[in-house]
């Protein structure tokens, strides 16, 4: 059974069947835009009761915070996996971080200026998004990614060396693990205080205050630290793969 023809044939049969049952099912789905969402309505009421203005934040970090803990550790495991899978083998003798295809001289002056200007702005925006997760769209996850990508503007502005100075990987490694650990520790702390695991035991504050909604901002910051470090770690490993030349290539 060789050749792409087999795969095409299997796909055609499978897609036909799946498409058929999918359409049959979709015709019975409640219409797009229908108003009946029982769980959604309860979640909104619970968010307001917990003084969390961003209902999505309340669901993510409070009501269904357990999912987010899992998600957090998926990212944690993925960063570990990137370290593990893209590690330097002794046999590979790669001159890591020393030879790069692109240096600062390859980048236009205008682009570099843009990079320098945008870097602090992006970091600021990222921080803001993390901290305000309970009251406005965004939160630890989105802010963490903005922070991580923002850091890589340094690469645009300068070169790999500037970037490496901005992101000491061993430190980020620990930050990442600490962020992940913090999430579980918040859960255990609630347990120790006599409430349930991950219960939102802190005072709630006013609906739109920064420090409202109990543990939600705390978890946001933990997630922000974890996500930011994890994304930087993953990007760093990929950059290293893409930008380092190894000696075998030149032989």
């Amino acid at each position: 059974m060789t050749g792409p023809r087999t795969a095409r044939l299997l796909f055609a049969v499978g897609a036909g069947g799946i498409g058929l049952v999918f359409v049959l099912a979709v015709l019975r789905l409640p219409g797009f835009g229908q108003p009946h969402h029982p769980y959604g309505a309860r979640a909104v009421a619970a968010a307001v009761a917990q003084h969390t203005a961003n209902a999505v934040g309340s669901v993510t970090f409070d009501q269904r915070g357990f999912d987010t803990m899992g998600e957090e550790f998926i990212l944690f495991a993925a960063a570990l996996a990137a370290l593990l899978l893209l590690r330097q083998l002794r046999s590979e003798e790669e001159a890591a971080g020393q030879r790069h295809d692109y240096g600062p001289e390859d980048v236009f002056a205008g682009v570099r200026l843009m990079g320098f200007v945008m870097l602090p702005v992006t970091l600021l925006v990222g921080g803001y998004v993390v901290v305000h997760g309970a009251i406005s769209p965004g939160g630890g996850f989105q802010g963490g990614v903005v922070l991580a990508t923002g850091l890589h503007l340094a690469y645009l502005a300068g070169d790999f060396r500037t970037l490496e100075r901005l992101r000491p990987l061993p430190v980020l490694d620990v930050t990442e693990a600490m962020g992940a650990a913090t999430y579980t520790i918040v859960g255990f702390a609630a347990l120790a205080s006599g409430a349930g695991f991950l219960a939102n035991v802190l005072p709630h504050g006013r609906l739109t205050d920064l420090m409202s909604s109990g543990t939600v901002p705390l978890l946001n910051v933990a997630v922000g630290a974890e996500v930011g470090s994890a994304v930087v770690l993953i990007l760093a490993k990929f950059l290293e793969q893409a930008l380092t030349k190894d000696r075998r290539a030149e032989a």
Partner: peptide, 29 residues
């Protein structure tokens, strides 16, 4: 869905395509 959109824009439009580009350049070599 502004929350989701923010995540999608940072991850789906920036980070993942970037990873793809980096992976391709290494694989091609």
């Amino acid at each position: 869905a502004p929350d989701v959109a923010l995540a999608q824009l940072t991850v789906g439009a920036a980070v993942v395509p970037l990873l793809v580009v980096l992976a391709i350049s290494r694989c091609d070599r």
